[in-house]
Every structure is written in C-alpha cells, then in structure tokens.
Design a protein around this nucleic acid. Structure first.
Length: 488
RNA sequence: GCCCUCGUAGUUCAAUGGACAGAACGUAGGCCUCCGAAGCCUGAAAUACAAGUUCGACUCUUGUCGAGGGCGCCA
C-alpha cells in the first residue's frame, strides 16, 4: 500500500500505514512536499488537503485530519468489512522465474549455513509462486572440475594411497567414502544432500548437473561463440581472456567465471526464463559482480538477473567463534542441527532475519532457547483460534459493525496480508513475513483478551473474524512451511 | 592497499526517509471462579563516533573506529 506517487511537477508523496492506529488507517506526507512549492507551512497545507478529502465524495473515507503536517485518513468500517469478504487474488503473471539456491558442492554434507540459504530460497519461491509467477527451484550440482578432482584425491589420501595435502577434505565423512570411485562418492554425497534437504522441507524442481547439462551440451562453446561474435575475447599466454579475466585456461579448462556465465546464459537464453534469481553466500559476492558484467556484455538486460547476497552464519560456542570449514571437517551439519532443535524452530530462527544480517548462531544457546522461540507464540495463537471455532456451534456471519476497537485492529492487520505478500514478491525481504506473523498473533491476542467470542450476542459475527484470521495465519504459515497445529 | 556487507537495550533480532526506535530472551513486579497462563498487564534498558543533506535520518552522503567476507589460469 505504501506506494510512491509522482505528481505533475515532480513532487513526490506516498500513502502509508502509521504505526499507531490513532494516526489513522493510512496517512500521506503529501503536505510536506507541497509546502515547499506553495511556500506555506506543512500543517497549513495538510489542513487544506484534509478539508478537501472531507468535502469530496470519497465513499471509502470516514474522516480525515491534519496533524503535524501529516494527513491522516480513517476508512469507513463498512469498507473494511466488505474488503474482508474478498478473496485474496493476484494479477495474472506470465513471467517464468528461476530461483537457484543452496547449490552446495557434493563434496560433503550440508552445513547449517546451507540451511539458511535453503529455507530462504524455499520460502521466496513459495511467495513468487503464490503471487502467480511460474517458478522453478533449481540446485546447481558442481559435479565436474577441480572440486571433484580434490574429492577423489582426498579419498585416496584417506585410503593411504597418496599424501595428505592441506587442501584436501578431511572431515570424518571422507572415511566412509573409502573404496568408492569419485563418481560413486559424488552420487552418495548428493544423495545425502537430497535427503537432508527433504528432511528440512526444502524442495527443488531441477537438479542441474554441471557435467551433464553444461559440459556435455557444449554450453561453454556456445557462450564463447557469443562473446567471440561481439569481439570481446582475446588470446594471450595460451589462454582466452575477457577483459582482465580468464575464460579458458591455457590447459583448455573453463574457469568458474565462464562456467557461471554459461550457466546463466543457459537459464536466460536457452531455457528462456524471464528472470534468474540466485541466492549466494557473501563469500561469492565478487563473483556476482563479474557475472553481471559478463551478462551485460552479452546484451542481456541486467534486470533479468537478481543476485541476493546472504551474509554468512557465524557459529559461536560459549561466547567464542568457532571457525567452520568443510575441508577441515569442522562444522555443524544441517542434519545435526535438526536433530537438536525442532524443524519449525529452525525455520523460524533463520527466516526471521534479514539477508544482510551477519547472524551469530550458538548451538548450545539455541537448544536452550528453542522452547522460547517466537514460533510457538504464533502457533499458540493459531490453536486458540482453532479452539474457539471448535467450541462454537454457530455459523460464521459477516459482521455489520464493530463492537470493540480490537476487532477493527484485527481486521486491519488481516487485510494487510495481501499487500505484504505482493511487496515481498518484489523486494525479496522474506523475513518480513515472520515479523508480520508475530504481529498478527499479537493483534489476535489483544482481541482475545478484549473480546469474548463464545457466548457473546455477536458470536456469529465474531466467529467470522476469528475464522478469517485463522485462514490468513494458516496461509502465511504454509508459505513459511511451518506447521499449523490445532492443538499444542 | 582496494571492493562488498554490517555496527540498534545485557543478548539475539525488527523498524518502505516520517509522528513517541519495536519485539523476544534475560531482568524488577503484577494477573487464572471468565473462549487454552506456550498467555496477559506494568517497569528499567539501545541507534558505535563525528560532520553533512532534509521540514524530518537507525535509514541517504562523507570521514573515523570496530566486525565479517572478498580481491587466483581455485569453485
């Protein structure tokens, strides 16, 4: 709802929702930008705007007022009530969106940090699908190249067939791979990754193999050809360069940069996705910049690529940082995490933080605090709603008016849901959903405290509010893929 | 040295450039003859520092300090 509008002469204003309900259902800051133009104090301009709103035939508005230069707008109760009746719907969208996330190398188990990106991408995909996009969830399997060779050698080193080097993977899981070929090892590790993801409730539509889907199909050659065609490549020292970056090494191998660009070209050109969203760890941000340059050079509209940088998770123990390293074998796996804390708690814990948060994670503390996780508060509100609905024998009926301010507040909150989903589908700030879920639960708790439903003269009408709230909360929790208990 | 993030109560996190910076945990206290106390109510407690832009700055700009990540013919 908070939309910026541009007026004729370049002045901007927006309509948004105030934090305090005493300041209206909506407010606008239009008077501030107008005041400069009109050379009058903001409050004076606001008063004339408010007056105009009062005089005009705006059938939705109950009243308007000017306060501190803001114009506050109060909607009619009847408007809120009739809006409540409308089903949530979104405009038709034709765009195909590819969301790539996790994409951890099949050289070891998934870590807890992979979980953060996993939950995030999973829910983001849910949201995009909810608002009507054609969404493909994709996992890139890095099953070729240097990492794979390293894995093979690491296994041989564990078997005593070669000397251990520092760059080798040394986690305990390597021992379990002894006797296997590199291909078998990758298959086994990939299988384990897939089962971890499944346990975590993170789903994928496409498992994109570098070996099968990029190398065997000659995507590199096609990409190189596109660059060559535009005169963007040069040969030097036996390698192929794009500016100051190498695309093909002197030994003939492609660099990761060429691989990444070829992969994106495959998504955006070969497979014709309108948009590619990639969730990357902060340790790959430099790569993101390079890839964007490459895409731009190919003439692909930059807006079709959206790279979301997820800050790394720092593992803490007893106030000290624990360095996580897959190679050294020091990390907490996603499986271990989910053995220690319930999945709803884990999901909430990761989903409530913005992408840009450098989060600290203390497993011991997490176990201890798991019982106090806000997710239970939200679920508890859901069970209360369920309990009220179960207790009443009446049929819910659309209200005709409100009996208590708490009813109105609850409706305002419920009505906010659709806009929120729409906004998040554009700004990708998935954590706003958990914030909203908590607020909705809080608003309901206030309603629960102030308004007795069962046995009330208006029981049927109040039931309508409760059931609508429950529907909304359940819809939200299903997007987050957090369970919606009827009883706890 | 250069680049990208981030510094908000004791702790972990919120806050489309808007009105009095919100929660949770912890902490001081209060509330169950009444739809579920996994709840409700009342306290104490924060924008790293310094300038600037703006009617208005946690938010934008610059600088300082601090934290994380990155600057390969590794991925």
């Amino acid at each position: 709802m908070a939309e910026v509008s541009k007026g004729e002469e370049g002045f901007e204003f927006k309509v948004s929702e105030p934090e305090r309900s005493e300041n209206g259902d909506f407010f606008t800051n239009a008077a501030f930008s107008l005041s400069r133009k009109l050379k009058k104090p903001p409050q004076e301009v606001a008063e004339s705007l408010a007056l105009r709103l009062r005089r005009g035939r705006y059938t939705l508005i109950e009243r308007s007022e000017a306060k501190n230069g803001f114009v506050n707008i109060f909607l009619k109760d009847s408007v809120l009530i009739s809006t409540l009746e409308e089903k949530i719907s979104f405009p038709k969208r034709e765009e195909k969106i590819n969301v790539e996330f996790v994409s951890a190398n099949p050289t070891g188990p998934l870590t807890m940090a992979n979980g953060r990106g996993g939950f995030y991408g999973d829910v983001l995909s849910n949201i995009l699908a909810k608002v009507g996009y054609d969404v493909t969830r994709e996992y890139y399997i890095n099953d070729a190249g240097n990492q794979v060779r390293l894995l093979g050698e690491s296994i041989e080193a564990a078997e005593g067939k070669r000397e251990v080097k520092e760059e080798y993977y040394q986690g305990g899981y390597i021992k379990e791979l002894m006797g296997k070929s590199t291909e078998e090892a990758i298959q086994k590790l990939l299988g384990e990754i897939q089962s971890s993801l499944e346990k975590a409730g993170i789903k994928f539509d496409v498992w994109f193999s570098e070996e099968k889907n990029l190398r065997e199909t000659k995507e590199f050659d096609k990409t190189l050809y596109d660059f060559e065609k535009r005169g963007l490549l040069e040969k030097r020292d036996g390698a192929v360069w794009f500016g100051d970056r190498v695309f093909v090494k002197s030994n003939g191998d492609p660099t990761y940069l060429l691989i990444d660009i070829a992969y994106l070209r495959n998504k955006l050109i070969e497979r014709k996705f309108d948009k590619a969203i990639i969730i990357l760890g902060a340790d790959h941000h430099a790569e993101a910049l390079q890839v964007k340059k490459g895409i731009a050079a190919l003439g692909i509209e930059p807006g079709r690529l959206k790279i979301l940088i997820l800050q790394l998770v720092r593992l803490m123990s007893k106030g000290e940082e624990v360095r996580m390293s897959k190679r050294a074998g020091a990390f907490v796996t996603l499986d271990e995490l989910l053995e220690q804390i319930p999945i709803d708690v884990a999901r909430w814990f990761f989903l409530e933080k913005a992408l840009s948060t450098h989060m600290d994670f203390d497993l011991d503390l997490a176990k201890e605090k798991s019982e106090k996780n806000p997710v239970y508060y939200v679920q508890y509100a859901h069970t209360r709603m369920a309990s009220i609905l179960a207790k009443s024998n009446l049929e819910a009926k659309l209200p005709t008016a409100f009996g208590h301010a708490a009813e109105r507040n609850l409706i305002m909150k419920v009505l906010r849901y659709q806009d929120l989903i729409e906004e998040v589908s554009k700004d990708y700030q998935v954590h706003r959903l958990t914030t909203y879920a908590y607020e909705l639960a809080q608003t309901f708790s206030a309603f629960y405290r102030d308004v007795k439903v069962v046995g009330s003269e208006r029981e049927a009408e109040l039931l309508y509010l409760v059931s609508k709230t429950k529907e909304t909360l359940a819809d939200l929790l299903s997007l987050l893929e957090i369970s919606r208990p009827e009883k706890m």
